[in-house]
């Protein structure tokens, strides 16, 4: 599967930040510290990951180590999908 960080950035920009396609943070910016997500948005992001990348996100996986930045989420998806990735 072809996975790009851009897909994550664009999804958050269009559906959570409403900034068109522009993601105005660095990939390492913390979703929590920067106020990028609220509690409901985390759930929304989980649903996006499951649907777009066809993986089942286990409850124990929903932790800041996996879901608190574009970089963390990208690495998590990469591990779960287990395919080569184009950054």
């Amino acid at each position: 599967m072809d996975i790009k960080r851009e897909q994550i950035r664009t999804y958050i920009a269009e559906n959570i930040l409403f900034t068109n396609k522009e993601y105005p943070y660095s990939d390492n910016a913390s979703f929590l510290n920067e106020g990028i997500l609220d509690s409901m948005n985390v759930l929304q992001l989980v649903m996006f990951v499951e649907k777009r990348f066809g993986i089942k996100v286990n409850d124990e996986d929903i932790v800041p180590e996996n879901f608190d930045s574009v970089a963390n989420l990208f690495a998590y998806i990469q591990r779960r999908v287990g395919t080569p990735v184009h950054a």
């Binding site: 929590l32 509690s39 985390v42 759930l43 409850d59 996986d61 929903i62 932790v63 608190d68």
Partner: peptide
């Protein structure tokens, strides 16, 4: 209601209220 969302891990929920 939030706690019963199921797939939302406590760690994350706590992180919101820890701000």
């Amino acid at each position: 209601d939030i706690a019963n969302l199921g797939s939302l891990n406590n760690t994350f929920l706590n992180a919101f209220f820890k701000r």
